[in-house]
Amino acid sequence: MSIIKVENLVKIYNSGAVPVTAVDGINVEFEKGEFTSIVGPSGCGKTTFLNMLGGLDEPSKGRIVIDSIDISKLKSKQLIDFRLHNIGFVFQAFNLIPVLTVKENIEFIMQLQGISAEEREKRVDVLLEQVGLLDRKNDRPNKLSGGQQQRVAVARALAAKPKFILADEPTANLDSKSTENLLDIMLKLNKTEETTFIFATHDNRVMKKARRLLVLEDGKIIKDEK
């Protein structure tokens, strides 16, 4: 069952002297439980495409329908709320809040969603158990390694119970061991919880683990391998 449907998506940047087409008429669908890597050379439009999927960037043309909602038609306020309840983000630079503990970083999203303290407490423990960091829940991010911080970021993305998780180069700042570890956790979550992951990556290790590979070039999908 398709949870994301992308139709004729175009993104043109007009900021410079010459308009730049970053995404050029993408048509694609993502199904629940997919583990997809979007790959391609630098500047091929991976991040732009991912940003539009996440509602962070506005398409110039085309539409993105997530669970029957055309997010390109949502107003700014509605889009923020949509992101909060439907999309999980994992960033290259982890982007944890340094003044909060691991637990608070994960809890934070749930607090934005208005989830009760009791439920948050339970869910934080479950998520930290899943990413193998339950014993570090009261540590600040600066006490953790890069790999551990990215695992916290995954737990934070899952905290909102999103429909899918978008991860932009999640392993770019990690060593091989941490990357393996992170990918194993994500795969496990994908299998056991049916969490949908969509990555934009250069990393061969991620590509190898992916069950679907979308190859982008000049803003177009040139290959869609399952």
Binding site: L56, K77, I80, R83, L84, F89, F91, I109, L112, R156
Partner: peptide, 15 residues
């Protein structure tokens, strides 16, 4: 970057 992350994950403008 941190404020961008907060906006991305769904913190609204008022908050």
């Amino acid at each position: 970057r941190e404020l961008g992350m907060l906006m991305a994950v769904g913190m609204n403008k008022i908050k």
